[in-house]
């Protein structure tokens, strides 16, 4: 089966973001395909390149980035949610004349159309929030 995931929570607030990651790993392990993981609203903070985790806690940003690279899964941050939260890739940082890009390079920024496309393409659409 083909899955897409919708993540609404940041790694810093509650368990939902980490649960989504572990679920994604389990889905792959069971032989399914993940078409896209779409991060929306506070979920876009998952792509924060400069987030620093305490040494005794999981580095969820790094874990998502590694997952995306190793499993060839698209990790997409919603552009409007991302911009409002200061999550900019280099082209957005240049466009808005901001000091630095803040998005981890394993994540890409795109519009809600990518979420709708994911829903067209997927047998399962699983939402994580709270």
């Amino acid at each position: 089966m083909i899955y897409s995931l919708l993540v609404l929570s940041s790694p810093c607030s509650g368990q939902a973001c980490a649960t989504a990651l572990h679920f994604a790993q389990a889905v792959i392990h069971r032989g399914h395909q993940i078409h896209r993981v779409f991060f929306l609203d506070d979920g876009t903070l998952t792509g924060a390149a400069s987030m620093v985790s305490p040494q005794d806690e999981a580095d969820t940003v790094r874990q998502w980035a590694d997952f995306g690279v190793h499993q060839s899964v698209e990790l997409v941050l919603c552009v409007s949610s991302a911009l409002k939260r200061g999550m900019l890739d280099q082209s957005e940082a240049d466009r808005y004349e901001k000091a630095a890009a803040t998005v981890h390079p394993s994540f890409e920024i795109a519009g809600l159309g990518q979420l709708i496309d994911a829903s067209f393409t997927s047998d399962r659409l699983i939402t994580f929030g709270g």
Partner: peptide, 20 residues
Amino acid sequence: VDYQGFAALTERYTTQQAWF
């Protein structure tokens, strides 16, 4: 259930409603 069990549930149930 563990995360694999969670994934197995999504195989059986075609739609998810997330409450949070």
